[in-house]
Amino acid sequence: MKTRFWILLPGIMLVLAVTLLSWKDIQKGPSIPEDVNTILSNSCYGCHSTGARAEDAVKALDFKKWDEYKATKKVSLFNEIHEVLEEGKMPPEKFLNKNPDKAPSAEDKEKIMKWTKEETAKLME
């Protein structure tokens, strides 16, 4: 019985560690507001998050790593998100042709653009 416990110990510790780590994540909460996150996950995360096949897109902007970006990088990305939405460059036409359901509505775009402006203002304070 005793030996079996010692064999199991590393496993138990691992489970504990993983739980604790993910608990920390849960506690921290998302830095992106829920309504914005819904739009982003529908229209953007497909290419702009770790693990997506579009390597260049992930490199340019990875929403999964959002919290790791420096403040200046965030300002830079907010600025670009605003720009590509305003100019209609993102999501790309090719992508929308294949996935018409992923097109953000005009209202969605407005919401994201407003969010980028507000967050930029906060960061620049």
Binding site: T72, K73, V75, S76, L77, F78, N79, E80, T120, M124
Partner: peptide, 11 residues
Amino acid sequence: DKAKKISLLDN
């Protein structure tokens, strides 16, 4: 403007 400058410097 300032935000655009930061974005350009980054780019």
